[in-house]
Write a protein that binds this DNA or RNA. Sequence first.
DNA 1: TTGTACGCGTTATCAT
DNA 2: ATGATAACGCGTACAA
Lengths: 345, 345
Amino acid sequence: MGGKKQSPRSRPTIKEVAERANVALSSVSRVLNEHPDVSYEMRERVTRAIHDLGYEPNLIASSLRSGSTRTIGFVVANVANPLFADITRGAARRLEEAGFSMVLTNSDGEASREERMIRLLRWRQVDGLIVALADEHRRETLQELAQHETPVVLLDRETPEVPSTSAVICDHATGVSQAVDLLFELGHRRIGFVSVLEAIRPGRERLRGYLEGHAKREVDVPRDLIRLGPLTPGFAEEAVGDLMSIESPPTALVVASNVLLVGGLRALHRMGIPVGDRVSLVSCDDIPLGELHSPPITVVDRDRTRMGEMAAELLIERIQNPEVGPRTVTLPTQLVVRSSTAALG
Amino acid sequence: MGGKKQSPRSRPTIKEVAERANVALSSVSRVLNEHPDVSYEMRERVTRAIHDLGYEPNLIASSLRSGSTRTIGFVVANVANPLFADITRGAARRLEEAGFSMVLTNSDGEASREERMIRLLRWRQVDGLIVALADEHRRETLQELAQHETPVVLLDRETPEVPSTSAVICDHATGVSQAVDLLFELGHRRIGFVSVLEAIRPGRERLRGYLEGHAKREVDVPRDLIRLGPLTPGFAEEAVGDLMSIESPPTALVVASNVLLVGGLRALHRMGIPVGDRVSLVSCDDIPLGELHSPPITVVDRDRTRMGEMAAELLIERIQNPEVGPRTVTLPTQLVVRSSTAALG
DNA sequence: TTGTACGCGTTATCAT
DNA sequence: ATGATAACGCGTACAA
């Protein structure tokens, strides 16, 4: 009796709201979108019908029609890395404030997955992209990125091949250079350096800081103390184990990531080498228990949450005003001196 | 000359592909969806046109029409918590394998935001939800959850008020009970317990384990050594500081989270109380440098990544087969004994 | 101020 | 095996 010709109990649409309120479909839309030209009377009737029916908007339909999904894509190699976890949190917060949702993709560092993810996000019609490339140079990935007509923000990456990307980058070189400086002041001359391959910016910049730190003092760089490899604890463990076993081992170590720190410490513990005593240690990017280690670890730190927030801001700014060009923001690093760095002797 | 009546350089649609290939629109759709009934000839022509035009599908339009977004919502209080970071990674991996995207929302533990997020995700027509509620009992949030017609999977939470949710839960009680047992064997009788309020399952279950551990030995529970509060390092620091200052302080402590561990250790370090020596310590959920602390921290651990994978599997299983009812999977915990727990001396 | 009507890019149901 | 056509739910230019 009175059965409308529609599937049983599907959610009400704007059309049914209109019927219930005895107004036109477009009027309902106007009320929903807070269009200025709606009478009080109309607003009331529609609002009432919406309430009665328990109407809820279908954002997919809205997106198709309006051309905007209010969704952005977020591409990282590994959210479980405390660095990216913090960045993700910061970005998510800012995006939410601006009414955007974040679709997260985790590539586990696999370049081909990363490429597919970037493409999929475009197919999903995201309004923008925040990306921490696993490899800045891979052609296929860069082409995929270049295909995007919506704004792209890079996270501590540089891709001259893809212009018109914004970026938030960090001043690693200065931080690491300061760390090397500190170590020199403490009397160290043979400073080891364990870092990632130069495929991404942080690796390059930290190496630069290490080199510049030596250059400033006009000291020859101990090339035999530099170890570059993949971003895994395993590599760092091997590298540090190796470094501490050579003829004249380093008296201080700079490890270029929290992930590498874990491996480095494992090696030192295993070999029974007391940190801060027989070897000074500096890490990059703080990590929860770093301050509570014995001894507490000196780190080149940065505001990770701020990085995420900044990336979101750069993105939103371009989405809301497509006229403005890309922008690069540089965030500082801070050398947090703790007792893992001690005077030589 | 030959100007089609459309906006300049918008991305080609299925329609333009059809025109280019001189076939019907529906045929293109069939080719794209790998419909069985397409001739080789047809497939070739369409594929060629797609390639020539650089056509890319519009998943928003597809979603509207098909009713499936192949997207799921992921609601968590804080991705930066290493526990959730790992879970997120696990879930993201499984979801991607099954062709789903994840839209991530971070509530920072604010109940009202969480409520809004759950609603927004429904408006976005997600095919399912994975949720780690900040508060299992808040009526408004539960109602929001109950509104969902698509499957919901709870992460270590229980909501009897909302039936038909699947869940992956962990056996915290057994793990903590084992920890208490270990401490008893080491001679401890006054065991402190610092945990979160009972608003969520892990808090309840860990408390239960603590109580059961005592009950098994027929030992009275030292009620004065139990401290429950918010999930912040600050609370744990205060609680531990307080516990260690009372007339007859505990000789062992169980802290119920990696977040609380940080605060607890801060207090002990500040007070100059050596862990493992003057006070034994057990934490819940491992954390990167926990194994490298001095002494290494004994923990009630669990497979965090597996939790995420499991949650994704439970969700996908119900999305792909709506007939099957909700399911609850219990994952084990493991007591990882390290040297922060030592004989009472 | 409100209503009419069309289109967003797809999928799916019909014929043929 | 292929083609025409009607939805999906909503926004908006235009008419009234």
